[in-house]
Amino acid sequence: MKDFQYARATSVTEAVRLARRPGAAFVAGGTELLNLMKDSVQAPDLVVDVNPVPLAEITQHADMVRIGALARMTDVARHPLVRDGFPLVSQALMASASGQVRNMASIGGNLMQRTRCWYFRDAAMPCNTRSPGSGCPAVNGENRWHAVFGGSDSCIKVHPSDLAVALTALDARVLIDGRPPVPIRDFYVLPGATPQVETVLRHGEMITGVEIPRAAGTSRYVKVRDRASFEFALVSVAVLLHTRHGVVQDVRLAFGGVAPKPWRSVDAEDVLRGRRLTDRLLDEAAEVAVRGASARRHNGFKIELLKRTVRAALDGAR
């Protein structure tokens, strides 16, 4: 890790003023930034500590709940407004990382965490996200973990945040200082030919929070992983399901572990909406959910696994 300047900001204005400098980076919980710096993936010249900025509140508004960017994962997951109003968010958070990490990590940092792709995290290997143009060894390499949706020949990373999957299902909006709220679906950017661009956030811009519009229904976050806890998702499914007399009024489906961004399946939602929730319909929806998925050498199982997980999640939510 190279030596850097460290500055503490106590307000958004100050934070942004400092972070606009070339080579500056925010630090909140540090649970991601420090790892990336230790692994020489990122090397900021100036680290702007935003922890003193008063942005940790969770507040209720007419038709939504607003969560400050510096609220910690633990506190968000346990907050009554979230636990009762958006259990999907609580579940996704509690299925993330470990107790210690959740006590440190902020919501803003969580949304900005970068892929766990092993080629990205090892600076000795090529990676188009880390060093554009160097190539993507995952495409023809060990890609069991990699994307079946939304990838390109330049990059098939997956986005690792569980929270982002839940927020995508909930149509949350990311609050960025100096800009109108950005729907989370538009916040993340697919790799295409420029995998180094991962979000719409520009250098120096600060996330101040997220807004989650109220939505009716029961929800379920199902996370499939290689060990029982403290592990990223192979595949995860967030479902919000609103039925009346067995008929689907509204449904949202978002997937993790399968794409460079949280993957929303509007097609599967359309199949479900307005119809009676039978076993046959679950099968059909699961089938549609994986339509368009494409596998590489080692990740074909994700398609089948996703299909089954979608079905199980819908079944669990009904």
């Binding site: 080629y119 090892d122 000795a124 023809n140």
Partner: peptide, 12 residues
């Protein structure tokens, strides 16, 4: 897990 082409351990 080792990358078959590069020979690097990916899960280190």
């Amino acid at each position: 897990i080792v990358d078959e082409h590069l020979g690097r351990i990916l899960t280190a």
